[in-house]
Design a protein around this nucleic acid. Structure first.
Length: 825
DNA sequence: TATTGATTGTTTTTT
DNA sequence: ACAATCAATA
């Protein structure tokens, strides 16, 4: 009997053993998809269906990539594992772009811009074109959507009546130009520009697509159209695309993920074999059934029903609290109690819909001295001081990066204000140069006082560039010292000291990085014999997540360790193209600094905090892929979860109507949360909660109402009156006023205005809707309740919340008003 | 140029 | 409530 059959169930086995051709693995929560992925890769290698460099496995997070690689290493050994491509979409894209940079007019040291850099660049692009920078955010979100769809500026098509869209398209063109001039790319470019590259250069595409005999994708339900296109290109030669995912866990629609990618996969790839993994190895049956009751209400989904061989387990519990503080304190008590009964804190987690909800929980946990950690994306690397130093470092490597130059040109303050910067930018624009190039250009038109202020900055950067070499840690220390950054922070008292500490933490991280790099370069061939037992963190040279520089060093220093029989194994007399490719890989060199900067851009520090026996607090989104013994989901109230935005009550597209797609996504989010729990699941809600500064009484979430009563306890309490209501009913002396929470002071003025802000479309809006889209376009006459009649000069945003710039009567002048509040005049 | 007061916008955020 | 950003000022 096949030894695999001992560790895999029949559908898992089928997926692992599938040979050539498209394969769709619909993997329910906790159904062992990583096990299938790792065994499948091991199988491909063992059966010689592919050699390690011919396999590409793509994930969404660095953590997933790391885990995948480690688990594969345990099956096939570190040598083969190190020669696989296992990476996130973005890391893989970054790697390809670095190798092929010249083909796109970039250099190998291009900068990767994060969200904040992107926004700044979009603002500059808007301003360059003479548009209001306040609209840049809206433009950027369109630009992101285009990138998610795989569209570069020339491919963007906007209908004429979509005026803001037309503007955004112009900004997009300018934005891309600016990035290119800065030798920089943004996150979206890490995908789209690879597509661009492959389109432009058939030979490059053939190199990669010809090489990857098997392409495997994890969390496929989260791919956006651009990523999907890229995958199709990469798999275009061999057609062996294996995707693993769960449409029920698609929770990133708002970021461009397209569930249809997984649902329609068999239609896009005729001949697809579909395998369903429905046996769950994580949760009790009651939890699974309750979760199923929620998710089955979604219409468009691939039918799956999880089952488990484990027992029924406890009922799902619902806990009703008075307000968010009460809710938090009950959760805290229960955590304490569970811990006393023997569940470690690390095995428990509290989930919420939005980060803001963590505050009450943190207070309650601190009060009880319960150890906790808040899982947030990449808080450390988002600190201003870290980004400032990173900007200096990037500037050293790639001085053309305008975004980085502008960030630090006056940090610490050196008397270079907006005026001076404007002069410099004008000079750069005149000459068609980057800011850095303009600094060195001796432009006669640059005013002399500006020149006087800029000169010391230029020589500072020059000096830095001379002093900064390979080591990332050294580079940071140099920057902190030579720029006067640390001195400046010292002057700022306690907060400054904290920031200095952060910088030293960064130096520490850089030292570790340097050390890993050096260690990789010193890696020696292993003596033949039985493979070493897996160490805690096996050092597996990884061309992607470990960063390219480390990998190259490793390969160069120790060809015997990595270069393997298989690479040298030549079929017949033909030179092995794989060996040739691998050899070509080794010819390029990076510094650890470039590697460190890439890590800074692509890697969050979420996994760094994973230490100690602590309760985990996180958003439902952050919970995907994790599991805990006991889980508390909080804030199960309408307008909190499902969020008010999905109910059409907030946000730029607020219509007052529920969006069924959004509700479906909230439902999936609920499903994801519930299926994280192994044996104990508690959903909590509060009768009232302060939200955006006002007290709100929300109805229990529909998701709580949909829980099957026989699997749940605590549902009855939902319809009981609160103590306050009870008291009011019994005691005639309490009048109506006393039933309501009293404000100590009158509610602030602004709150009252705000009440109307999110009100569903008011009367003017209705007239407006009737009058049609053009009623708001520039030139239109509109009437505003306070300002009277005026003429629209500009518009921004979409829907009834779009903003109009309107010129009213002479006394009133130019005002920005929300479209909701005007009616056609 | 830095400080202030006012205004604004607030889900989620793997990369 | 609250943080971040903007606009007016000293």
């Amino acid at each position: 009997m096949d030894p695999l059959a001992k560790v895999l169930n029949p559908p898992q086995l089928e997926a692992v053993r599938h040979g050539e051709g498209p394969l769709l693995i619909l993997a329910g929560a906790g159904s062992g998809k990583t096990r299938v992925l790792t065994h499948r890769i091991a199988h491909l290698l063992r059966e010689r269906l592919a050699r390690a460099p011919e396999i590409l496995a793509v994930t969404f997070t660095n953590k997933a990539a790391g885990e995948l690689r480690e688990r594969i290493a345990k099956l096939v050994g570190p040598e083969d594992a190190s020669r696989l491509w296992v990476a996130t979409f973005h890391a893989a894209g970054a790697r390809i772009l670095r190798r092929e940079a010249e083909a796109l007019g970039l250099t190998r040291s291009f900068a990767i811009y994060d969200d904040a850099d992107q926004l700044a660049a979009a603002k500059r692009a808007s301003a360059d074109l003479g548009f209001d920078t306040a609209t840049a955010k809206a433009h950027l979100s369109r630009i992101d959507r285009w990138k998610n769809a795989g569209l570069l500026p020339p491919e963007v098509r906007v209908p004429d009546y979509d005026v803001p869209g037309k503007t955004a398209a112009k900004v997009y063109t300018q934005y891309q130009k600016a990035l290119q001039a800065s030798n920089a790319v943004d996150f979206g470019d890490l995908i789209v520009r690879v597509i661009e590259l492959f389109r432009k250069r058939e030979d490059v595409l053939q190199n990669y697509a010809g090489r990857f005999r098997h392409v495997l994708v994890d969390e496929f339900q989260d791919t956006n159209p651009a990523q999907y296109q890229l995958l199709k290109l990469l798999a275009s030669v061999h057609g062996n695309l294996c995707v693993v995912g769960d449409d029920d866990q698609s929770i990133y629609r708002w970021r461009g993920a397209e569930v249809d990618n997984i649902l329609d996969f068999p239609r896009h790839f005729p001949g697809t074999r579909t395998v369903r993994l429905e046996q769950n190895y994580r949760s009790s049956q009651r939890i699974l059934s309750a979760a199923h009751a929620i998710i089955e209400k979604n219409e468009r989904r691939a039918e799956k029903k999880l089952w488990t061989a484990a027992g029924e387990g406890e009922k799902v519990r619902v806990v009703l609290a008075e307000d968010e503080r009460d809710e938090a304190s009950r959760v805290a008590s229960e955590l304490y109690e569970q811990n006393a009964r023997g569940t470690s804190y690390a095995e428990m987690a509290v989930f919420y819909r939005a980060n803001a909800q963590s505050r009450a929980l943190e207070d309650a946990l601190r009060a009880r001295r319960i150890p906790y950690r808040v899982v947030r994306g990449r808080s450390f690397y988002d600190r201003a001081e870290v980004k400032d130093v990173a900007a200096y470092l990037r500037l050293c490597v790639n001085p053309r990066s305008d975004g980085d130059l502008l960030r630090v040109i006056n940090v610490p303050p050196r008397g270079i204000g907006d005026t001076t910067v404007d002069h410099l930018r004008a000079s750069a624009a005149r000459q068609g140069l980057s800011l850095w190039e303009a600094l060195g250009s001796n432009d006669p038109e640059l005013p002399s006082n500006a020149r006087a202020k800029l000169a010391p900055f230029k020589s500072l950067i020059d000096k830095l560039r001379e002093n900064v070499s390979g080591s990332a840690a050294d580079a940071i220390e140099r920057v902190v010292e030579m720029t006067g950054y640390e001195d400046r922070l010292r002057l700022e008292g306690e907060e400054g000291e904290d920031r200095i500490d952060n910088l030293y933490e960064l130096v520490g991280a850089a030292k570790e990085f340097d050390a890993a790099w050096n260690e990789a370069s010193g890696l020696r061939p292993q003596t033949p014999g039985p493979p070493a037992p897996p160490v805690e963190k096996p050092l597996v040279p990884n061309p992607l997540t470990m960063t390219r520089s480390q990998y190259l060093k490793a390969v160069r220093a120790a060809p015997g360790a990595l270069g393997s029989e298989q690479t040298e194994e030549v079929e017949g007399d033909r030179p092995d193209p794989i060996a040739a490719l691998a050899a070509a890989d080794r010819d390029e060199a990076d510094t650890p600094l470039i590697g460190f900067l890439e890590q800074l851009a692509l890697v969050g520090d979420a996994d760094a905090a994973e230490s100690g026996d602590r309760v985990s607090l996180m958003t439902l989104h952050a919970a995907k892929g994790l599991e805990f013994d006991a889980v508390w989901m909080t804030g199960l109230e309408e307008r909190v979860f499902p969020s008010s935005r999905s109910l059409g009550q907030t946000g730029p597209l607020a219509s007052g109507e529920e969006d069924p797609n959004e509700i479906a996504e909230e439902r999936r989010l609920c499903y994801v949360g519930m299926t994280r729990a192994r044996r104990k699941l508690t959903l909590t809600l509060a009768r009232c909660r302060s939200l955006f500064g006002e007290l709100r009484f929300n109805q229990p979430s529909r998701f709580v109402r949909e829980l099957p009563p026989d699997l749940t306890e605590g549902l009855a309490a939902l319809d009981r009156l609160s103590p306050m209501q009870e008291r009011a009913r019994k005691d005639v002396f309490y009048d109506d006023y006393d039933q309501r929470p009293r404000y100590v002071d009158a509610p602030p003025q602004r709150n009252r205005m705000r009440e109307s802000r999110y009100e569903p479309a008011s009367k003017p809006a209705v007239k407006l809707a009737a009058a049609g889209v053009d009623a708001l376009s520039p030139g239109a006459r509109v009437k505003h309740p306070t300002f009277g009649v005026g003429t629209v000069e500009d518009e921004d945003g979409a829907g009834l919340n779009r903003k109009l710039t309107v010129r009213f009567a002479p006394g009133v002048g130019l005002k920005k008003v929300l479209a909701r509040f005007v009616e056609p005049a």
